[in-house]
Design a protein around this nucleic acid. Structure first.
Length: 469
RNA sequence: GGCGCUAUCGUCUAGAGGCCUAGGACACAGCCCUCUCAAGGCUGGAACACGGGUUCGAAUCCCGUUAGCGCUACCA
C-alpha cells in the first residue's frame, strides 16, 4: 500500500461531537500506524449554519485531544467551481441529465404518490418532462438541477470494518448532484473533493453507509479510483439513542469543562468500538502500534460517563502533580481562589488520588488553601451531630497538642496518637473531627498528611475557630 | 413502506468451529487493609436476542424471525 491519505470532514455546526471526535481519532490512529497523511476538511457548504467561530471550536477540540492534521484545514466552500465542473463533465458524458422540475412540482408529485399509499421514487420516465417541454423550458432559460443517472448494476464494496456490502443500482433513485443555483449537493462535493485530495481511505460514521453506493457510482462515472471505505459505528447515549447535545454532554468541550484530561478522553474514545485486547489503559504509542481497521466493532456503543470518570481518575493519580499544575490553576482561577506563595504542588499531590476529575480535584485543593470555602457535606454534618460536645473538645485538645509539634506528617501523626492514648480516646475520635473541621467532609488523605499540607498557623487557627463555634 | 446495517453480562468489550462449565474492565454487593475515603487485593451475582439448519462439535458458518439504528431532500 502506498502511503494512505485520510480525511476528517466535519461540518461546522458549533461543536465537536464525541462521535466525530472518535472518527477523527480512528483516522489519526490509522494514519500514524501507516505513516500516512491526515487531511482536515471543513464541510461548510451549508452557508447558513457555518461560521468561523464554529470552525474554531472544532479545531480547538481536536488540538485539545492531540489529534493533529498534516494538511488543511481546507474549506469545501472554496471548491464550488470544481464541483460544478465535475457535474457538467458528467452531463457532457451523458451520465447525468438536466431536471427542469421545480421543487414545488417535485414536492407535489411526492405527496400525491405518498397520499395514495405508494412509495415515491424518482422515475425519469414518468416524472421527466416530454422532450418538447424540455426544449421549450431550456429555450426560455428555465432553471434546472443536474441529476445523476444511477447505473442499473450491482454496486458493492469490501468495507474495512463490515466486510462486503452490496446494493443494486435499481434501488437507488437518480439523485441530484447540482442544484439549480449551481451549487453541489453533498454526495458530489464529497466525491469531487476526495478525488482531488487523493484520499485513499474514507473512514467515517456508519450513517454514511447508504451514501456510499451513490458515491461509488460517482467515482466510476468520473473515472476515478475508488478508495477503501471503513464505516465506524455510532456512539449512543445511555438511553440507547444517538448521543445528542439536547439530552447529554455530546460535545468534546463539555468533557473538557467537566475536568477530563485529554489523554483519558482519548483512551476512552479509542476503546469505544475498538479494543487492543484485555487492557483498559492503553498508551498512545501502544494504540498506534496495534490499531487496525479490521478490529473495529460493527455495533454502536453506549457512551458511559462513569467509566470515563474512572479512567480519568486513573490518569489523574498516575500523573505527576507538576503536570496537573496548569489545569488545576485554571480551575482555581475560575473559582476565584487565591493561594499566594503556598505550595500548590504539594496540595495537588496530596489530593489527586482521591479525585476523578480536574474540577473535583480543584475543589479539594481550594478547601485546603482557603478555610472559608469549607462547607460541611451530609456526612460531615452527621458526624458533628453525633459527637455533640465531644467534637469541639477533640478539636481543642488537638490544637493544644499540635502547638509545639514539628510540622511534618510523621511528627503530627505521633503527636495525635500520643494525644489519643493520653486522653483514652479512639484514634478516629481525634482524627475525624479534624478532617471535618478542615475539609467539611469525612473523606480525605490521612489526617496527618492533610494537616501537613495546610500551613501550621492556618491549620491551628482553623481548628481553634471551628472548636469555638 | 423500500433498501441497507447491527445483535455476547446493566455498560465497554475478549472471542475468527473444539482452548468457553464464555475471559477482562466499569458499575454493583461482600471481605481484607485503614482514623476516614480513595487506591490496591480477594470473593460474588450478572450475557452468547429467538427459531431452524450445516457439522462429530457453533457465541463463532448459513437461513428465517424479532428488535434497534441509518438512508430513502435541489440537508450534511
Amino acid at each position: 500500500m502506498s502511503l494512505p491519505r485520510v480525511r476528517f470532514a466535519p461540518s461546522p455546526t458549533g461543536y465537536l461531537h464525541v462521535g466525530g471526535a472518535r472518527t477523527a481519532l480512528f483516522n489519526w490512529l490509522f494514519v500514524k500506524r501507516h505513516r500516512g497523511v491526515f487531511v482536515l476538511r471543513i464541510e461548510d457548504t451549508d452557508k447558513q449554519r457555518s461560521t468561523d467561530a464554529h470552525t474554531q471550536v472544532i479545531l480547538d477540540g481536536m488540538r485539545w485531544l492531540g489529534i493533529t492534521w498534516d494538511e488543511g484545514p481546507y474549506f469545501q466552500g472554496d471548491y464550488a467551481e470544481r464541483h460544478k465542473a465535475d457535474a457538467e463533465r458528467l452531463l457532457a458524458a451523458g451520465k447525468a441529465y438536466k431536471d427542469f422540475l421545480t421543487t414545488d412540482e417535485l414536492a407535489e408529485a411526492r405527496s400525491r404518490i405518498e397520499a395514495s399509499g405508494g412509495t415515491f421514487r424518482y422515475d425519469r420516465a414518468t416524472l421527466g418532462l416530454s422532450a418538447e417541454e424540455v426544449v421549450r423550458r431550456e429555450a426560455a432559460g428555465a432553471p434546472y438541477a443536474i441529476r445523476f443517472e444511477v447505473p442499473q448494476e450491482e454496486i458493492a464494496w469490501d468495507d474495512a470494518v463490515h466486510g462486503r456490502i452490496s446494493w443494486q443500482g435499481r434501488d437507488i433513485d437518480d439523485f441530484i448532484i447540482l442544484r439549480s443555483d449551481g451549487s453541489a449537493i453533498y454526495n458530489l462535493a464529497v466525491v469531487s473533493d476526495d478525488i482531488a485530495m487523493r484520499i485513499t481511505h474514507v473512514i467515517r460514521g456508519d450513517d454514511h453507509i447508504s451514501n456510499t453506493p451513490k458515491q461509488i457510482a460517482l467515482y466510476r462515472a468520473l473515472g476515478a479510483p475508488q478508495p477503501v471505505f471503513a464505516h465506524v459505528p455510532m456512539i449512543l447515549g445511555t438511553d440507547g439513542k444517538k448521543l445528542s447535545k439536547r439530552r447529554a454532554a455530546a460535545a468534546v468541550g463539555d468533557y473538557q469543562d467537566m475536568g477530563i484530561l485529554p489523554a483519558a478522553m482519548r483512551n476512552f474514545l479509542a476503546l469505544l468500538g475498538w479494543s487492543p485486547g484485555q487492557e483498559e489503559i492503553v498508551s498512545e504509542p501502544e494504540m498506534i502500534a496495534r490499531f487496525a481497521l479490521e478490529d473495529i466493532q460493527k455495533k454502536a456503543a453506549v457512551f458511559d460517563t462513569t467509566k470515563l470518570e474512572w479512567m480519568n481518575g486513573q490518569y489523574l493519580s498516575a500523573l505527576p502533580g507538576s503536570e496537573l499544575l496548569a489545569p488545576v490553576t485554571r480551575q482555581l482561577q475560575l473559582l476565584g481562589v487565591e493561594w499566594g506563595n503556598r505550595d500548590l504542588l504539594g496540595v495537588i499531590t496530596a489530593a489527586k488520588t482521591r479525585a476523578r476529575t480536574i474540577t473535583h480535584l480543584a475543589e479539594q485543593v481550594a478547601v485546603r488553601l482557603d478555610g472559608s470555602r469549607v462547607v460541611r457535606d451530609e456526612k460531615g454534618v452527621a458526624l458533628v451531630a453525633k459527637m455533640g460536645e465531644r467534637f469541639p473538645a477533640a478539636l481543642r485538645l488537638a490544637t493544644v497538642a499540635l502547638q509545639e509539634v514539628e510540622w511534618n506528617p510523621t511528627a503530627i501523626e505521633a503527636a495525635l496518637k500520643a494525644l489519643a492514648e493520653r486522653e483514652g480516646l479512639k484514634l478516629g475520635d481525634v482524627m475525624q473531627p479534624i478532617r471535618v473541621a478542615l475539609t467539611g467532609g469525612t473523606v480525605s488523605e490521612p489526617v496527618h498528611e492533610l494537616l501537613a499540607v495546610i500551613d501550621r498557623d492556618d491549620a491551628l487557627r482553623r481548628l481553634a475557630a471551628t472548636a469555638a463555634t
